[in-house]
Design a protein around this nucleic acid. Structure first.
Length: 1035
RNA sequence: GGGCCUGUAGCUCAGGCGGUUAGAGCGCAGUCCUGAUAAGACUGAGGUCGUUGGUUCGAGUCCAUCCAGGCCCA
């Protein structure tokens, strides 16, 4: 008894298949072996961008994970040892927020009252809450990544590498403290990162729009004004006006001095940009036109003189090495300065400058050494003795406007709607507030950042010079400190007396400084804050205490190339062994400013090298209607529901092929189901067909001779297509393009099923076991095993199942998994362009022939005498001889002839079709289809002989349906009963052999079916016929 | 306001260097085929290829403008 293929039914349940394959992988430990069994293979590094496990994974997480997986699996099959360590991102404000919500608190004061130790303990616990769900999903979608030994950003070893990195930067002068205008939430009393700010933009936010008159002390040319003269400036934040210390103009722009009258009827003059005169509401005349440069330097009176209202005044002064310092001052002056950011699109072309607030204002303050007046505290309350002191800034806005109106300094006010950031946690409008933070001086390596970027292969390519390149060229120093609790503590200690600072690069160093045994210290707050030591400066009585800030969690993820190995405290060999940089990373496009940047910046700073060679930047995943998925819209798709319904391969295949990686992709259950049906089920049915007949014929792979070459036309054609497919798919995957790889495979599966198998069926059915039949088996077997390997990186489950049944079962020496085999290599000698062209012609002619038949009402089961074909070029006409047999069989026609010679049918058909282009017309007894220069004309004449033959086919078809309905096995022999008019009886006799052979009937009995037979009575070609089938004992 | 991307059939997507009559799948209506198929074939309806200009003998394709949508940033 020869070995048999496992029976493959066409009714497959992919989710069950997935489970079986997952068990198999686990049992054989395939994933671990895929890297460990090849210690000498070239390394391929995949870096895992760490997710946070404090929520359930969504479909967008599946998207990134399958794209990571497909490349890793492909590289494994190409002979690499792929390293892919899992990771978890565990720090940061989102984690804190979740705990705040659970505790029902929302301010830092409440957290500190609650206790940092307990607060952080809860944060630590929460980030692993959904780890199990993540692990199950990861497993379920077939993402191979080492989850047993992941890196975790909260572990001491991981944090220690971070300290070491910061110390290195500190030693090189790249870590510094500075005052910047930063988005600040007055309710949470904390800065927000740019990432967080992005979460809270609201469109159409109404804000006051006020045009304010600043009274000039001196006027153009240095003259003393003879009538009241003003600079007209515009703002949407009246509360910042007490902080005003300058006005900014654009030096090259045109400004106009207009004359008008104020509310008291007095003549005044005002300066504003000529391009913006339209903002003036009353009558006016233009008295003078000047360049902005002529306004620069003119002094004016502050609206609210800080010396009268008791707000602290400071002044920027030039310090050492080009830096500026901020010193306390008694008084200040205000004047017009130039700035390049002055807009001529809205406002008045004269910009109100308050260095205590906006970042541009602060920069301008440094540049021009302006005064710095801070009349607002960190809670957003106006300080000092202003009439509106004690108010929250937004509540002070109307009072300030009223006060200015009363003083005749408000020219005009209205409402301005714009996009404004709000705190994403508490909906408080954010204030831009100048305060000190810690920065990494990334601008010091800006050229290297840009230069190294040019060595990265971006997919899609435009990200390199577009979004990412643009971001790098506009690089600003990286604000890394957060005034928060749950994060990597910044390892800087400062003397509480003299202010001396010390940066600590590791736990051992800290133990040496403090003289304590710190082996068991949790490096988080508040424990690390308890470590102190006496100041070592001369006779300073102070103690060094850690500064309160923690690090931006993007720093955590950006340092993973080193920190995942606890470098340099362990694993120093990673410098040389190929683990730096990564060969491949993949995340969604929102990581451009996130992980992609933090990796790139830290790698450039630390190694002056790239962090990754190849990166796929994925587009967002949208719902079936093109909307972003969000909890609020309730359109989030749970991965489980898709996986349970259609299986992992269908989901993967859809995600790979629906659109190119960089494009947004719409997602719906229906689209996944369509992929399943069109690609996986079609392949599965070919596979099922093959195994069914191979078992009947006791075919097994070892029967294929070692030097076998395809001979039959169809075999040579499909193997040409297959080998070309191997070349193309390999090229696409090598180029990080699973999308086109998958699409090409799907096209091949389509022609394999709908042309190769469709046209070859009879070769498998026939009873004699000749060379042609062996050729068909060898060919289809080769196609299936090759496709299984080709698609293994994309659809790892179904390909594994096919591999095991088709190859492993017959070759115990083969690797136990398709994922441990080598990726297919094309045999170029089998790629025959000519035969591919010829077959394409056959497919086209067949399609047109069916159209011609269909139009004339000639069903395919009715044989016809002849078909006339006209090709577009004479070259193609030569192909007709080769493929005529395929065409005739497909179209059920007896003879084919090329058009031309004496009776040129084409010209008659053309004139009949007229201007109609592609169409089907009837000419001279033919039904002819025209398309793009081709013509296929079928002879519509049905002779009595042809009619009988058609009836024979019809009867055979009916008998086949009865067999099928009776659920007979394909190989069962039967007896057929029939009862009908003379025509039926005649055909049953004259075409009896044909019908018997087709239906495996041992005899055709002209009588009513016996009771045991399966029978039906139906109209056949208008005649009432009774047919019955009965199984006979197999011989 | 700036940067990047996208716009082709009702939906999802193809359309190498500009070149014959712009395609496929799904969906809809109908016809056919089927002893692998949960499939397949054919016909039909459905397109100002986002807009307006320009380059060209010729533009879905190249350039510019505008419009709409998305993402990122200010």
């Amino acid at each position: 008894m020869p070995a048999m293929f496992d029976v493959v039914t066409s009714r497959v349940n992919f989710p069950d298949l997935d489970a079986e394959v997952l068990d198999y992988w686990k049992e054989r430990d395939v994933f671990r072996r895929s890297s460990e069994e090849r210690p000498d293979a070239p390394l391929f590094m995949m870096y895992e961008g760490p997710p946070t496990a404090n929520g359930s994974p969504g479909i967008h997480h599946v998207l990134a994970r399958v794209f990571k997986d497909v490349i890793s699996r492909y590289r494994t099959m190409k002979g690499c040892r792929v390293i892919r360590k899992g990771g978890w991102d565990t720090h940061g404000l989102p984690v804190e927020l979740q705990i705040e919500q659970e505790l029902g608190i929302s301010t830092k004061r409440e957290i500190e009252e609650f206790g940092i130790a307990e607060f952080n303990r809860r944060c630590r616990e929460s980030v692993f809450r959904y780890v199990k769900e993540w692990e199950v999903m990861t497993d379920r979608i077939g993402y191979w990544v080492d989850m047993d030994d992941p890196y975790v950003t909260l572990e001491n070893d991981y944090i220690e590498t971070g300290w070491w990195i910061l110390k290195r930067l500190w030693d090189r002068g790249l870590l510094y403290q500075d005052r910047r205008g930063a988005p600040h939430c007055p309710r949470c009393v904390s800065s927000l990162s740019s990432h967080e700010v992005a979460l809270g933009y609201r469109e159409n936010t109404p804000d006051p729009s006020v045009f304010v008159k600043f009274e000039a002390n001196e006027w153009i040319g240095g003259a003393t004004p003879d009538i009241p003269s003003y600079f007209l400036a515009w703002t949407t934040t009246p509360w910042t006006l007490p902080g005003n210390t300058a006005l900014a103009v654009s030096v090259d722009a045109d400004y106009s001095v207009v004359e008008t009258t104020d509310d008291n009827g007095q003549t005044i003059r005002m300066a504003l940009a000529t391009a913006l005169l339209e903002v003036l509401t009353g009558d006016y005349t233009v008295a003078q036109e000047v360049k902005g440069s002529e306004l620069v330097g003119l002094s004016y009176r502050p609206l609210y003189d800080a010396t009268r209202y008791g707000a602290p005044i400071r002044q920027f002064v030039a310090g050492v090495d080009g830096q500026t310092a901020l010193e306390d001052a008694e008084s200040y002056s205000t004047r017009v300065v130039s700035a390049d950011f002055v807009s001529m699109d809205d406002g008045s072309g004269i910009v109100h400058i308050a260095p205590a607030f906006g970042d541009e204002d602060l920069g301008l303050g440094r540049e021009h050494q302006l005064a710095f007046v801070q009349p607002v505290d960190l809670q957003g309350i106006i300080t000092g003795s202003y009439p509106f002191a004690g108010k929250f800034v937004k509540d002070a806005d109307p009072e300030i406007a009223a006060d200015l109106t009363e003083r005749g300094l408000l020219y005009h006010q209205g409402i301005y709607r714009h996009t404004y950031p709000f705190c994403w946690r508490c909906d408080t409008p954010l204030l831009y507030y100048a305060k000190t933070s810690w920065y990494i001086r990334t601008t010091a390596v800006k050229d290297q950042l840009v230069g190294n970027n040019s060595r990265i292969n971006w997919y899609p390519e435009h990200i390199r010079e577009g979004r990412f390149g643009e971001w790098l060229r506009n690089n600003v120093d990286w604000a890394i400190s957060r005034e928060r609790y749950w994060g990597t503590p910044i390892p800087i200690w400062q003397c509480d007396h003299c202010g001396a600072m010390d940066c600590v690069g590791g736990v051992k160093e800290l133990a040496e400084r403090s003289g304590e045994d710190l082996d068991d210290l949790d490096l988080h707050r508040p424990y690390v804050d308890d470590v102190t030591w006496p100041c070592s400066s001369d006779s300073c009585p102070g103690a060094l205490r850690r500064i309160p800030e923690v690090m931006d969690c993007w720093f955590d993820s950006g340092m993973m190339p080193l920190a995942q190995w606890h470098y340099p405290f362990e694993n120093r060999e990673i410098e040389q062994d190929g683990r730096l940089p990564a060969d491949y990373i993949c995340e969604a496009v929102d990581q451009t400013r996130g992980w992609f940047y933090s990796l790139h910046a830290l790698s450039t700073l630390m190694q002056d090298d790239i962090a990754y060679r190849n990166v796929i930047c994925l587009g967002l995943i949208l719902d079936g209607r093109g909307r972003k998925m969000s909890k609020r819209l309730g359109n989030i798709v749970e991965p489980d529901s898709i996986l349970d319904a259609h299986g992992a391969d269908a989901l993967r295949w859809y995600l790979f092929t629906a659109s190119h990686p960089g494009e947004p992709r719409r997602f719906s259950d229906r689209l996944v189901q369509q992929t399943l049906r069109q690609v996986l089920l079609t392949l599965w049915n070919v596979y099922s067909f093959f195994t069914n007949y191979a078992n009947i014929d006791e075919f097994e792979p070892s029967q294929i001779p070692g030097d076998w070459r395809p001979e039959a036309e169809l075999d040579r054609w499909v193997l040409a297509e297959l080998n070309q497919l191997v070349q193309v798919v390999d090229g696409h995957l090598d180029n990080y393009n699973p999308t086109d790889a998958g699409r090409r495979i799907a096209e091949f599966i389509d022609v394999l099923s709908n042309w190769y198998v469709r046209r070859s069926r009879r070769r498998f059915w026939k009873s004699e076991a000749d060379a042609d039949k062996m050729g068909a088996y060898a060919t289809l077997y080769t196609c299936l095993t090759t496709v299984a390997r080709l698609m293994a990186p994309l659809a790892p489950f179904v390909s594994e199942q096919m591999y095991r049944n088709l190859e492993l079962k017959f070759n115990p020496d083969a690797p136990d998994s398709v994922h441990l085999t080598d990726y297919p290599v094309a045999d170029p000698s089998l790629i025959d362009e000519t035969i591919m062209d010829a077959t394409r012609l056959a497919i086209r002619v067949s399609s047109m022939g069916r159209a011609a038949r269909s139009k004339a009402g000639l069903k395919v089961r009715q044989p016809l005498a002849s078909v006339v074909v006209r090709t577009r070029t004479p070259d193609e006409a030569k192909y007709l001889d080769w493929v005529a047999e395929q065409i005739l069989e497909e179209l059920n026609i007896k003879s084919l002839r090329a058009d031309g010679g004496e009776q040129d049918l084409y010209s008659q058909v053309q004139s009949a079709a007229g201007d109609d282009g592609d169409s089907v017309v009837s000419v001279d007894g033919y039904s002819a289809a025209l398309e793009a220069g081709y013509m296929v004309a079928v002879d519509a004449t049905i002779t009595p002989e042809l009619a009988d033959e058609g009836l024979a086919r019809e009867l055979a078809h009916r008998i086949q349906n009865l067999r099928k309905g009776a659920r007979f096995e394909i190989t069962d022999h039967i007896v057929t009963y029939y009862q009908g008019p003379d025509d039926v009886a005649r055909v049953m006799t004259t075409h009896g052999d044909y019908i018997k052979q087709e239906t495996l009937s041992e005899s055709l009995l002209p009588q009513l079916p016996v009771d045991e037979a399966h029978a039906e009575t139906a109209k056949v070609e208008g005649m009432e016929v009774t047919l019955g089938v009965q199984r006979v004992a197999s011989g």
